[in-house]
């Protein structure tokens, strides 16, 4: 299950904010949005690979969460609950758009990829050629991820980005453990194939 970020000392706990939200306090919800928008946006962005759409979907997820808050029983962490809502929002959107991983890759969807790849490169003392290779690999990874079907993309992101266990992935989607493993297996094989030239020297 995706772990909530470690709270800062003195930070109002999620549970207190949730209770205030359930009483209709939109300011408390604003705090929760500020706390989790970066993670929710990252999730939608990795799935959609379009900055504008990801931004809108992340908003939609928070709006749906607000609507659903009265029925939130606090039997799981707020972020876990929010994450599942986001997942449903994104997946519904993908289904509607019928984006298929086998489709031709659209460069316009990753026009900002270099910057995104560069973000993942540690700042500081890396030699320029290493930093460039890292940025290039980041771009290639984003492109490869975009070529997966939504189902495979979703599973690999839940596992690798969110660090979810198989059981939690199965509960989030929802599907069986066997389906999770099959999709993970296929997604990795496909990524290996798409990134083959990046890893050739590893053989």
């Amino acid at each position: 299950m995706p772990a909530p970020a470690a709270p800062d000392p003195g930070e109002v706990p999620d549970i207190d904010l949730v209770k205030r939200c359930q009483a209709g306090d939109t300011r408390a919800f604003d705090v929760l949005v500020g706390r989790y928008r970066g993670r929710i946006y990252a999730m939608t962005y990795h799935m959609i690979q379009n900055e504008t759409e990801a931004w809108d979907l992340a908003q939609e997820a928070f709006i749906k969460a607000w609507r659903a808050l009265p029925s939130f029983k606090m039997d799981s962490a707020f972020y876990t609950w929010l994450y599942r809502i986001t997942h449903n929002v994104v997946y519904d959107w993908l289904r509607k758009k019928k984006i298929q991983g086998e489709g031709e890759f659209d460069d316009s969807r990753t026009e900002h990829r270099v910057a995104a790849g560069a973000e993942a490169v540690p700042h500081g003392d890396l030699p320029p050629d290493t930093a460039l290779k890292n940025a290039e690999l980041g771009k290639r990874i984003q492109q490869a991820i975009s070529k997966l079907s939504p189902e495979h993309r979703q599973v690999i992101l839940l596992r690798e980005v969110e660090g979810m266990a198989y059981e939690d992935i199965a509960a989030t989607i929802p599907c069986t453990l066997g389906t999770v493993m099959s999709r993970l297996f296929y997604a990795r094989k496909k990524l290996q194939e798409l990134l083959k030239d990046c890893y050739e020297y590893a053989h």
Binding site: P2, Y41, N134, L137, I141, V161
Partner: peptide
């Protein structure tokens, strides 16, 4: 590499 280039928070 996936974990490095696909940050959990952006």
């Amino acid at each position: 590499d996936l974990r490095t280039h696909l940050p959990a928070e952006m």
